[in-house]
Simulated scan of single mutants.
Amino acid sequence: MRRSRERLAQQLIDQMRAQIESGKLKEGDQLPTEPQLEATFGVSRTVVREAIADLRSAGYVRPIQGKGVFVSNPSAQKAFSLTPVEIKSIPETLELLEFRMAAEGEAAAIAAYRRTAEQEAAIRAANRKMAQMIEDGAPTVEADYEFHMAIAAATNNRFYVDVLRHFGPRAIPRGQFPTLPEAHDRAYLDKVHAEHIEILEAIADQEPERARQAMRAHLLASQRRYRMLAEQQ
């Protein structure tokens, strides 16, 4: 189910990008409402929201509170100018996310049936810490990393912990791209936190496949964002 949702979100992203890049949707145009997009593309509201979030992160659209979502100039996304070091980091980031999808997807599934009460509490604590960092406007990379490390520990398999510890906080992509607006964007960080909650709830409910797919969806969403970023450079 989640994999189908991921495919639909990517299809919607591709179609909307094509409309923006071809000029069919011009800078300043207001996007249809969520219900209208659902009806037009035959997808769920969740798929629409995921696609809009990714397009927003890549600079294709921008929300205006109380008014709606509007088309941005895709080339304007380059205005923030990634540093040469950041640009060189993109291919490695995509490779790391691909690896993490395999390793951490399985780790989440294992944690769902092996985690102890104490380990579940540690995952929850890391999740609360990140929520507080977002609320305070403080850096969230360390708290994000702690959340993923707590899941690795809940597998009770030291190799998952060793692998994630090897990468350290650089496993969290936005920590490598401080120039990106989304690194400090409240709406984006709230979306990341919501994805963490889905993973946490699946582990707490001891549903391995649900946990695996929630983790995979979380990392795939990140991969989509950085792939679009690579295409803009």
Rank of each mutant, 00 (worst) to 15 (best):
R2W: 11
R5F: 12
I13N: 01
Q15I: 05
M16R: 01
R17A: 03
R17Q: 05
A18Y: 01
A18L: 11
G23Y: 04
K26W: 06
K26Q: 15
E27V: 15
P32F: 06
E34A: 15
E38I: 14
E38P: 07
A39Y: 08
A39G: 08
F41Q: 03
V47I: 01
V47K: 00
V48Y: 07
R49P: 06
I52C: 02
I52S: 00
D54A: 14
R56K: 08
R56W: 01
S57Q: 01
S57D: 13
A58H: 07
A58W: 04
G59Y: 00
G59F: 00
Y60P: 02
R62A: 04
P63A: 13
Q65S: 11
Q65Y: 08
V69T: 03
V69E: 00
V71I: 02
P74I: 02
S81H: 03
L82Y: 04
P84T: 03
E86D: 00
S89L: 11
S89Q: 11
I90C: 04
P91H: 13
E92L: 14
E95L: 06
E95W: 07
L96R: 08
L96H: 01
E98Q: 05
F99H: 04
F99N: 02
M101Y: 00
A102G: 01
A108N: 10
A109G: 00
A111P: 00
A112P: 00
A112K: 03
R114E: 03
A121V: 03
A122Q: 08
R124F: 11
A125L: 09
N127R: 15
R128E: 13
M130F: 11
A131P: 07
A131R: 09
M133R: 02
D136I: 04
A138P: 03
P139N: 02
A143V: 03
Y145W: 13
A153C: 10
A153T: 14
A153W: 11
T155P: 04
N156M: 08
R158N: 06
D162E: 09
D162A: 14
D162S: 14
R165K: 15
H166R: 14
G168E: 12
R170D: 12
A171G: 03
P173V: 09
R174E: 14
P178R: 10
P178W: 05
T179Y: 13
T179A: 12
L180F: 05
A183C: 12
A187R: 15
L189F: 09
D190G: 12
D190K: 15
D190V: 15
E195K: 11
E195S: 13
I197E: 15
E198P: 05
E198K: 13
I199P: 07
I199F: 08
I199S: 13
L200D: 10
L200R: 14
E201A: 12
A202S: 15
D205I: 08
P208L: 09
R210V: 14
A211G: 03
A211L: 08
A214P: 09
A214Y: 07
A217I: 12
A217E: 09
H218K: 05
H218R: 01
L219N: 02
S222M: 09
Q223H: 14
Q223T: 10
R224F: 06
R225Y: 13
E231G: 02
